[in-house]
């Protein structure tokens, strides 16, 4: 063994244990899912014969799956962009020095400390047609004359779910943005003021460009979280009525555990992985390209 080979050998040996562990944790479930997706699998996970691509063909032939893919993209896009749009001004305000700043920060972070399932249940109750506070409030201030059955149709239920999704995602993104804002040196604002830049100009020319890496981070992480987020939709509508609020992860759960088709569910989960990978690759590429001067 030459000296240079030995030098390369030692560090590899040092990372080997954690590499093997990571490989095991990531690779085993992945291998298991990939195997299930090409087999006939019974309700109880017993592998039958080799199915080739039959599971994939079946889900792609299912009109519900196709509609669900589009709805998932709408869900992810709406929740992530909504979250960013809400979080930006909120974190700008929270970054200012004002009386009660600590309290305000705590209040914004609060939804984060409540489990997603619990938040979803509370909102479901709030939108209850007969006893919910939303209908009660709207009726008492005269906006509504009849109670609205919010969860009875997808056209009202799905936007509500998106709003709840935004609400629970805001704290995480605000945290990222506050970190980003505190990393921007204050003297550049001073210089800009001396050069005659107004607050709006400061925001567009300084804050936003300097926050960009943090916005990218927030977008990528949130897309992954929201795309895979199960509790809100499952608790509020279970993907119904008439599949009108189904997203891929609820569809997958239903296939696996309600309808007893784990093979197809495995195929859906691989499709989800592919969609996320494609998105992340494109997004990261775009960011890297536009970050170059």
């Amino acid at each position: 063994m030459t000296a240079s080979a030995r030098r390369a050998f030692a560090p590899r040996m040092l990372i080997a244990p954690s590499f093997v562990l990571a490989l095991f944790i990531i690779a085993y479930p992945f291998f298991d899912i990939a195997r299930m997706s090409v087999y006939h699998v019974s309700r109880f996970g017993i592998l039958g014969g080799f199915a080739g691509l039959a599971n994939f063909r079946r889900i792609f032939a299912d009109p519900v799956f196709i509609a669900t893919v589009w709805r998932t993209l709408v869900w992810t896009g709406a929740v992530v962009s909504g979250t960013i749009l809400v979080s930006l001004p909120v974190s700008l305000v929270l970054n200012e020095n004002f009386h009660g700043q600590g309290l305000a920060r705590t209040l914004v972070m609060l939804p984060w400390s409540v489990s997603l399932t619990m938040s979803a249940i509370v909102w479901l109750w709030s939108f209850d047609a007969n006893h919910g506070m939303i209908n009660a409030t709207l009726q008492s201030i005269g906006v509504l004359r009849q109670p609205v059955q919010w969860m009875a149709r997808a056209s009202t239920a799905f936007p509500i779910e998106i709003l709840v999704g935004i609400l629970v995602s805001v704290p995480f993104v605000v945290t990222i943005f506050l970190g980003g804002l505190s990393s921007i040196p204050s003297d550049i604002y001073e210089a800009a003021r001396i050069d005659g830049a107004g607050r709006v100009q400061q925001f567009w020319r300084l804050t936003l460009p300097l926050l960009r890496p943090f916005i990218s981070l927030a977008v990528v992480l949130n897309v992954i979280y929201v795309f895979n987020s199960f509790p809100i939709i499952w608790v509020m509508t279970q993907g119904g009525p008439a599949e009108g609020t189904q997203i891929l992860v609820t569809y997958l759960y239903e296939l696996a555990f309600r309808l007893g088709r784990p093979g197809e569910a495995a195929a859906v989960s691989l499709a989800m992985l592919a969609i996320l990978m494609v998105f992340t690759t494109i997004y990261v590429r775009m960011q890297m390209r536009s970050a170059e001067p």
Binding site: G240, P241, G260
Partner: peptide, 19 residues
């Protein structure tokens, strides 16, 4: 076998009609 799938298809159908 697979009765749940029939039930599910019927539920989707009646819900879309009610809506």
């Amino acid at each position: 076998r697979g009765w749940e799938n029939v039930a599910k298809a019927v539920i989707d159908a009646v819900q879309s009609v009610y809506l």
